[in-house]
Structures are given as structure tokens and as C-alpha cells.
């Protein structure tokens, strides 16, 4: 490893390409943390947003008028506002209204941290799109199929879980893919409320070492890699779920 570090140090001296994230142990460690944090934030938000989408789409089909209105209100609120504004609103406005607990420095700290608010706002933001994506899948399930399930004695929840959702999922997977890819990219916004993900770390590194082009390039490739991995997994899943004779 030491030879590799030395080589990158030499690269900086010889060409001016300054990749401190390789040879400087402090920068390396914080960039690794940033990378892990981005993956963690993406996976958690991915999971929550899909759950929100599935539950939201089910509630949207509820026979109760007010449940439907509530879900639609949520979608309008989160789909129509920029995620950065949501993040600031959650962290600085709602965050200060939270109950407080005393931390080890004797300070009354609000209970939800910047991590919590980032996860909440990103999940609800992507979730609002997911609800609509799942609805598009649900509406593509033939009415006759639903009626057949009802005829077999399935109640509404059972019909949704065993019949409608499995078919709907296959229809809406391409759209869901798109939205989840967007979600991974949107996690960069968490830098605004000091969640130490990759953009946040890169920003601090290029302020310290003035190696902006190198860090920008690194960020670009890191996201190409991360999103590429996600797309690969999703495509694999899409293929494994294909039903002969259903959909395209």
C-alpha cells in the first residue's frame, strides 16, 4: 500500500494532479467515511421510500374519502417542493420544535439529528413519487383480475398483497428504477444540513487542498459507479421477475 501512496504523492509533485484522498491518511479516512455514509443514506432512504410508495398506493385506493385526500395532500406537498427547501424546513424549522434532551455537554438538544431529518425528508420526497409510480402499476392491472380475486373471497388487503401488487410491481419497475436512481443522486443535498456524505467531504477536502478539479472528477466517477451498481441490481431483479405472457 505504501508504494501506491508514494506514487500518488509523486504524481502530485510531477503533474500537479493532487489526489490527497489516496496519499493523505486523514483525507482518505474521511472520504471512505463519506462514501460509506452515502451508501448508507441511499439504502435507508431507498427502503423507506419504497415502503411509503407501496402503503401510499394502497391507501390511495381506500374507500374512505379522507384517507384518499390525506394521501393526495401528502403527494402534493412533497412532490411540489424542492427537496433542499424541505431539508432546511425540516431541520431548522420543525427540528427546533422537537422535544429536547440533555446531552453530555449539558446542552438541551432536539431529539432528531440532522441524519434523521435527512432520512425523513429524502424518504418522503422519493416516497411521494413512488406512490404515483405504484398507482400507475395498479391501474394497469386488469379489472377482471381484481374481480376474480374478489370472487375467490379475497378481501381488499389480500387482493392488494397477493394479486394486484405482484402484477403492478412488474409494470412499474422501469419507472421505479428511474426514481430510485434520482434518489441516490439527491442524497448529495444532505450536505446542506451537515450530513457528512461524499459531496460534503469532497467540499471540505478541496477547500483545504485547493484540488477542486480532482475532487469533482472523483465525485463524478464515484456516483457513476454507485448508480451503475444500483441499476445493475434493479435490472437483474426486473429480469428475474418477468412473467411469460405478462407485459412486454
Amino acid at each position: 500500500m505504501q508504494e501506491i501512496y508514494e506514487w500518488f504523492r509523486w504524481l502530485n509533485e510531477a503533474t500537479g494532479i493532487n489526489l490527497t484522498i489516496v496519499y493523505d491518511s486523514y483525507d482518505r479516512e474521511r472520504m471512505i467515511d463519506g462514501f460509506v455514509n452515502t451508501i448508507y443514506l441511499s439504502l435507508v432512504c431507498l427502503g423507506f421510500s419504497v415502503i411509503i410508495g407501496i402503503v401510499g398506493a394502497w391507501l390511495q385506493g381506500s374507500p374512505l374519502k379522507w384517507t384518499r385526500r390525506l394521501v393526495n395532500g401528502y403527494i402534493q406537498l412533497f412532490r411540489n417542493t424542492p427537496p433542499l427547501v424541505q431539508m432546511y424546513f425540516f431541520f431548522f424549522a420543525l427540528g427546533s420544535l422537537m422535544p429536547r434532551v440533555e446531552n453530555e455537554w449539558g446542552i438541551m438538544e432536539p431529539i432528531l439529528s440532522n441524519w434523521h431529518w435527512a432520512i425523513l425528508s429524502l424518504s418522503f420526497f422519493a416516497g411521494s413519487f413512488n406512490v404515483e409510480i405504484f398507482r400507475s402499476g395498479i391501474e394497469a392491472v386488469p379489472k377482471a383480475t381484481v374481480e376474480a380475486a374478489e370472487a375467490l373471497g379475497y378481501n381488499r388487503l389480500q387482493t392488494y398483497v397477493y394479486v394486484v401488487l405482484p402484477l403492478a410491481l412488474r409494470v412499474c419497475l422501469p419507472a421505479l428504477n428511474n426514481n430510485l436512481v434520482n434518489l441516490v443522486k439527491t442524497t448529495t443535498l444532505a450536505y446542506a444540513i451537515a450530513v457528512p456524505e461524499m459531496l460534503y467531504v469532497a467540499n471540505q477536502i478541496w477547500s483545504d487542498s485547493l484540488n477542486v478539479p480532482e475532487m469533482m472528477t472523483f465525485l463524478l466517477f464515484a456516483y457513476v459507479l454507485l448508480v451503475g451498481l444500483l441499476v445493475m441490481v434493479m435490472n437483474k431483479w426486473e429480469r428475474s421477475m418477468r412473467l411469460p405472457g405478462f407485459g412486454a
Binding site: G95, R100, I107, E109, P110, N114
Partner: peptide, 21 residues
């Protein structure tokens, strides 16, 4: 543990909220 915000007003706000020591 540095909690870095984009500007002084956000950082001061966070300090007042008790998010940093």
C-alpha cells in the same frame, strides 16, 4: 466532530438549537 454548514447564519442557528457544543 465538525458539523459544517453552508453559511454562518445556519451554523449560528444550529448552535442556538443546541445541535453543537
Amino acid at each position: 466532530e465538525i458539523v459544517g454548514f453552508t453559511g454562518t447564519s445556519e451554523a449560528l442557528n444550529a448552535l442556538r438549537q443546541g445541535r453543537c457544543a
